Amino acid sequence: MLADNQGTYLDADGQDALWRTLNEHGAVDFAHPAELPAPAVENIPPFAADFLLDTTRAAYPLVRNGILRRYPDIRFILSHTGGFVPYASQRMAVTIAGETGRSPLDVLDDFRTIYFDTALSAGPAALPTLLAFARPGHVLFGSDWPFAPVAAGQYFANGLDSGVDPGTKAAINRTNAEALFPRLACAPTPTPARPAPVRLRQAAQRVGARFFFKLVQPGTD
């Protein structure tokens, strides 16, 4: 699902029939951002901040309005580490607690029931923050393909390769998804391709990174 559809977010009135059906089937709901329901700010590409804010805006009412609690058999996945959710979770929890009278710790626990993918987000600051916040088993690999160029996905996948220990990397790359989608555990593991020479691979990564940054920030050399 899109985080918002022309300004309508996932908590809008009239969606209960949808949530009931998804809950009955134990569905997995993947929420991906769209453009904010407002004009983009000049010189701030939506990729840089707006998409992350859109995802955060989708998560907030799911917790604020009790959708996660009323429909506990739906597993929600938020792309791009959930936008700003891991970083702003306590701030949002305090706000929701003040509005609803709930405990901030209970609100935080609701946010932590969400699953998060690593698409375009496995950087040296974002990844440790996500792992510190998310429940064990709730972080999944993401590349943002086909929305982002392959070079962009590879650039951030390299951050995952070098940023976590082998056990965590294996869990994010496969075993966490197998627990969420048990049928995947029965699928044969593909034979890994022969690794390219280190110097060639590193050169390709550098070229991909430069190409990616030229796409999202014109004028970057």
Rank of each mutant, 00 (worst) to 15 (best):
T100S: 14
G82P: 15
L52Y: 05
A134H: 07
W145A: 01
P190I: 08
L160I: 12
S79E: 02
D54H: 00
R64N: 12
A152W: 02
L140N: 01
G101Y: 13
I74R: 02
P128K: 11
Q217A: 12
S162Q: 11
A171S: 02
L140Y: 00
N176G: 04
R75H: 14
S162P: 04
T95H: 07
T8E: 13
F213G: 09
D29G: 03
N173K: 01
S162K: 08
L131D: 08
Q90I: 13
G159M: 10
I74L: 07
A209S: 10
H32G: 00
H32W: 09
C186Q: 10
N43C: 05
A151Q: 05
A12E: 12
E99A: 15
L200W: 04
A170R: 10
P128S: 13
V139P: 08
S143V: 03
A38S: 06
L53M: 11
N176P: 01
E35A: 04
P33F: 09
D11N: 15
H138W: 05
L160S: 07
D16H: 15
R199V: 01
P46K: 01
R64A: 07
M92Y: 15
D106G: 10
Y87A: 04
F47L: 00
L184D: 05
T8R: 14
Y9D: 10
I96F: 14
A27T: 06
A27P: 11
A171T: 03
F213K: 12
F111T: 10
G66A: 08
D29P: 11
F84T: 07
W145H: 03
F76N: 06
A204S: 06
P72W: 03
T8I: 14
A93V: 13
L200Y: 02
F84I: 08
L200G: 00
F111I: 12
R91P: 12
P46H: 04
T81E: 06
V139Q: 08
F30L: 09
I44A: 03
D29A: 13
R112I: 09
L78G: 07
P197G: 11
T95R: 10
A88G: 05
F116Q: 01
A196E: 05
M92R: 15
A157N: 03
Q90T: 14
I96N: 14
A119C: 03
D221S: 11
G163T: 14
A97W: 15
R57D: 03
V198D: 00
A196I: 03
D50I: 05
A126M: 12
A122N: 09
V207Y: 03
A126C: 11
L140D: 00
G159Y: 12
L22A: 14
N5A: 14
G66S: 08
T56I: 12
V85W: 13
V207L: 10
R91G: 15
R112N: 13
N65G: 10
P61W: 15
T129S: 13
A170N: 08
R194Y: 04
A12M: 03
A58E: 09
A126S: 07
A49P: 02
A122Q: 07
A152G: 02
R201W: 02
D54T: 02
A171M: 07
D161F: 11
P182R: 07
G142T: 05
D221C: 04
T175W: 06
N173C: 03
A177H: 06
A58W: 14
P182I: 06
A152D: 00
R64M: 08
S79W: 05
R199A: 00
A204M: 06
N65P: 04
G14P: 14
A132K: 13
L108V: 08
A134K: 06
